[in-house]
Write a protein that binds this DNA or RNA. Structure first.
Lengths: 103, 103
DNA sequence: TTATTTTACTTTGTTTTTCAAAGTACTTTA
DNA sequence: TAAAGTACTTTGAAAAACAAAGTAAAATAA
């Protein structure tokens, strides 16, 4: 039997990654510093969680120089958008359907 | 500044714990086996995640014997219900508000 | 000019968490 | 009475999370 949580995506199980994706769903892109400030996370934290999402190809990373300073932009990929939407749908289903034991 | 994820509860950051709580929100109680089957998790998995929720006093555990067999029932505590509801509210806020970088 | 601080990350190593396999203590079935 | 099953718990290895330290270039101060 398919379990009630089988469509919940492990990649989004963490609040920082959830936050990153949710920011990238509504913004075309976000840079390192913005994510860090928005999420109240440490540098290392943002680095490792974005790396994890990048590894899954859920976000793309664009490195450039802005005002002669390095700048890293994160962008949700199509794959990422789709996966995140499916995750949200699964979440909604889990939470809104009453998961009654006597079905 | 309060970050957009600061009200997301770390205790519910994991899909198995999320599943346990969501089941316990709509059912008065659930036993070990039911949780295990509903969530498609291993024994050790259910044991450690329920223990984590118990440690936070989000669920209560009642041990008894049913048909001479040991039976463990898990029940959401008032504290747990409240915490979970707040978590859901935070989730909704995170996902539905557009977290625009240009606010 | 040179030193110091700041910015924007990345790397590192420890701590914490997750996980499933193995263990325990029975009960049931053969 | 032995073997198999049930209902968990314990364990220890593997993975993930974390923040501190590191790096490199730029900006600012001396």
């Amino acid at each position: 039997m398919k379990s009630i949580i089988s469509n919940i995506n492990k990649a989004f199980d963490h609040r920082i990654r959830l936050g990153i994706m949710s920011v990238l769903m509504v913004n075309e892109y976000a840079d390192f510093k913005s994510l860090k400030e928005l999420l109240g996370a440490t540098d290392g934290n943002i680095a490792s969680h974005t790396k994890a999402l990048e590894k899954q190809k859920y976000i793309k990373v664009e490195k450039s120089f802005i005002d002669r300073k390095p700048n890293t932009r994160y962008i949700a990929s199509e794959k990422g958008r789709k996966a995140f939407q499916e995750h949200l749908d699964a979440l909604e289903k889990l939470l809104n359907s009453k998961n009654d034991l006597n079905n």
